[in-house]
């Protein structure tokens, strides 16, 4: 399994580059499209917060910067998961006609989301500079916190891509779930502190990572270290198990995609 993975690194890169360069080739704004939805979302909520959503508590840093940082991580998860879940169906023709390591497709699909995140990152730097926010030195640990999130996303992607190949309902419900999922995650509001809303911090698998990444960027101290640790371990275990499941189940699924 591992050998197959190492052997197909090159293919993974090719598929990733293929999808990326093909997507924006016939568009005038090119890669800018990756951040346009984020900019619109941030602008909308910043405006809404002034008049209607006044219930949202004050954030430690300027609200647009706050929303954008949360949104970037949320999208890393949601876009990654949606792409990974759909990748087997999108490459149906390839799967039924050529024998190659199919994990590649899931990894390449997630790579797409990772690239998306990097573009958002550039935007975050610009916004932080605009508001003259100086991040804490602990910001260098943010990538470490995000690794388990990535693994968890890929792990879920493995399972959902298989399930989606057999029953298409998975893909349809996923996009629905992701729209509401964002509001159940501390993206546009600070982590709640009172019951029952506080459950969002524990039950939503993405929350601890977003909170931790913000903590490291702004204050330098983790506010929910144990939830983060638990969710990280969960993410890693899920990734390993899901990969194994994918490996075993793929031949049976290939004929039914």
């Amino acid at each position: 399994m591992m050998r197959e993975f190492l052997g197909s690194r090159e293919l993974m890169w090719r598929l990733f580059v293929r999808d990326l360069s093909a997507r924006y080739r016939q568009s005038a704004f090119g890669y800018l499209w990756a951040v346009v939805p984020a900019i619109i979302t941030v602008a909308t909520f910043t405006w809404l917060k002034k008049g209607i959503l006044t219930g949202i508590g004050d954030t430690e840093i300027a609200y647009p910067a706050y929303v954008l940082s949360g949104l970037a991580i949320w999208k890393l998860f949601s876009v990654g998961l949606t792409k990974a879940a759909g990748c087997l169906i999108a490459s149906r023709n390839l799967i039924t006609k050529v024998n190659f390591s199919r994990e590649t497709l899931v990894f390449a699909a997630f790579g797409d989301s990772l690239f998306n995140f990097l573009i958002h990152f550039v935007l975050i730097v610009l916004v932080f500079a605009w508001y003259r926010i100086v991040p804490s030195w602990t910001v260098v640990f943010v990538p470490v916190v995000l690794v388990p999130l990535c693994l968890m996303t890929i792990g879920m992607g493995f399972i959902l891509s298989l399930a989606n190949s057999i029953v298409r309902d998975v893909g349809s419900s996923l996009s629905l779930l992701m729209t509401f999922g964002m509001f159940l995650t501390p993206v546009i509001y600070p982590p709640p502190t009172r019951y029952p809303m506080v459950l969002i911090n524990y039950l939503n698998p993405v929350s601890p990572f977003i909170t931790a990444a913000r903590d490291l960027t702004i204050s330098g101290t983790l506010s929910q270290p144990w939830t983060l640790l638990g969710m990280s371990i969960f993410g890693i275990i899920l990734f390993v198990l899901a990969w194994r499941v994918f490996y075993v189940a793929m031949p049976r699924v290939a004929e039914r995609v």
């Binding site: 090159e10 293919l11 090719r14 598929l15 293929r18 999808d19 360069s21 093909a22 080739r25 016939q26 490459s91 023709n93 390839l94 006609k97 050529v98 024998n99 190659f100």
Partner: peptide, 26 residues
């Protein structure tokens, strides 16, 4: 296997790019 020629060809990309993609897939 030549079950389907041009597996993984992406219509938007050039012939040159597709040679590399198809080659890696095979």
């Amino acid at each position: 296997a030549l079950i389907e020629v041009g597996a993984g060809f992406h219509p938007m990309l050039t012939g040159r790019e597709n040679i590399y993609i198809n080659g890696s897939i095979l």
